[in-house]
Amino acid sequence: MRSQGRVRFIRISARAQMALAGAAMVLLAAWLGTLGAMAVSRLSAGHEYAALLNREAAVAKSESRVQAYRDHINETTADLDRRQHFIEQMVQAHIGDLPHDKQAGETVSDSNGEAAATVKKVSAALPEARGLARIEAEQLAFVERLTRFADRKSAAASEAMRKLGLNPSTMISRSRAAEGGPLMKLATSADGSLDPRFRRMGASLARMDALENGLASIPQVSPAHVAYVSSSYGYRSDPFTGAAAFHAGLDFPGPMGSPIYAAAKGMVSFVGQRQGYGNCIEIDHGNGLMTRYGHLSGFRAHVGEKVGPGTVIGAMGSTGRSTGSHLHFEVRVNGQPVNPRPFLEAARNVQQETR
């Protein structure tokens, strides 16, 4: 600096310069932050105000809808009536006519008389609600008919299983061995409770589903398309030793490489070799049922694969303890072999009768 003819010098160290620059940056950042906070606050307030307007609009819309119900109860009743008939027509198209009659021994409730009395009382006390009371009565009658339908299907499936020597109760208990999932409560009333008639319908439908799934897992398709069975289930003369021996399945003779089919729906649980069976496939059908296919020349399935009745799973051969190309087929219940012939001969007819 020049002052009165003299020159003076002021020296600022690098550290001081960095400190001053840092302070300036902090002040600048604080100023920008304040501006940003003010902008965000204004924006947030704008969004909250817009959301409040939307909520007010939604409330107004709901209130107008309730008022529309009050002003147009006849139109609302007609819409619900058409919906009820649509549901009943869809059910009829997919599963057939639901029973209207009540058979001896059935324990399903019959609300027709009480529902008619309710409709009459509502009509006298509140004429404009007569249509809604009638629709409610139709719904209850529909639920009871559907419950009767499920109970009769369950009874038919149970009888079919007994004809095949199986215990329906065991099939049901095994189908419930592994269950889970999130809790999703159902309610038919404003207080969150479930009408007993709907609860009964749910139990009947669940029982029907378990029994029909069990019935579908019963062997019903011939595992090989051949003209005859060369060796039956039971005691026979052993083809190698000539001595009496127990034969745990059926033998289907045929050309080498002929397709082998799954006898029922299930999941492939074993693919490989077993002593005496050679190349072997086992299918778990659930409910303690298993089928075994032995002496194969090739595999067409893998462990964990889900198969349906008639799915090709292998090729006929003569591996293992075998004297020629054939399929050894077994049915096992809870690990014990049973005669496959009644299943293959009767299951299809029994299931057709059940349907």
Rank of each mutant, 00 (worst) to 15 (best):
E159V: 09
A160D: 07
A160E: 09
M161N: 09
R162Q: 13
K163N: 13
K163G: 10
L164Q: 03
L164S: 04
L164T: 05
G165I: 07
G165M: 11
L166T: 02
L166Q: 04
L166W: 00
N167I: 10
P168W: 05
P168Q: 12
P168C: 09
P168H: 09
S169Y: 04
S169R: 10
S169A: 13
T170W: 09
T170V: 14
T170Y: 11
T170N: 14
T170S: 14
M171C: 08
I172C: 08
I172W: 05
I172G: 06
I172R: 07
I172D: 12
I172F: 04
S173H: 11
R174L: 15
R174G: 13
R174E: 15
S175T: 14
S175D: 15
S175H: 10
R176E: 13
R176K: 06
R176W: 01
A177Q: 15
A177F: 07
E179Y: 04
E179P: 00
E179L: 11
E179G: 06
E179N: 06
E179I: 11
G181R: 07
G181Y: 07
G181Q: 08
G181W: 05
G181P: 03
G181C: 05
P182F: 00
P182R: 01
L183P: 02
L183A: 08
L183M: 07
L183F: 01
L183C: 00
L183G: 01
M184T: 11
K185E: 13
K185A: 15
A187F: 06
A187D: 13
A187Y: 07
A187K: 09
A187S: 14
A187W: 04
T188L: 03
T188D: 06
T188W: 02
T188E: 12
A190H: 02
A190D: 05
A190E: 12
D191E: 14
D191F: 02
D191V: 07
D191M: 05
D191K: 06
G192T: 03
G192D: 10
S193P: 10
S193C: 02
L194S: 05
D195G: 00
D195L: 01
D195T: 04
P196F: 10
R197S: 10
R197W: 07
R199P: 03
R199F: 04
R199S: 13
R199L: 08
R200I: 01
M201W: 05
M201F: 08
G202A: 05
G202T: 12
A203G: 02
A203S: 11
A203H: 01
A203W: 01
S204G: 07
S204F: 00
L205K: 02
L205Q: 12
A206V: 09
A206N: 13
A206D: 15
A206M: 08
A206P: 03
R207Y: 00
R207I: 06
R207M: 08
M208L: 00
M208D: 03
M208I: 00
D209E: 14
A210S: 12
A210K: 04
A210H: 11
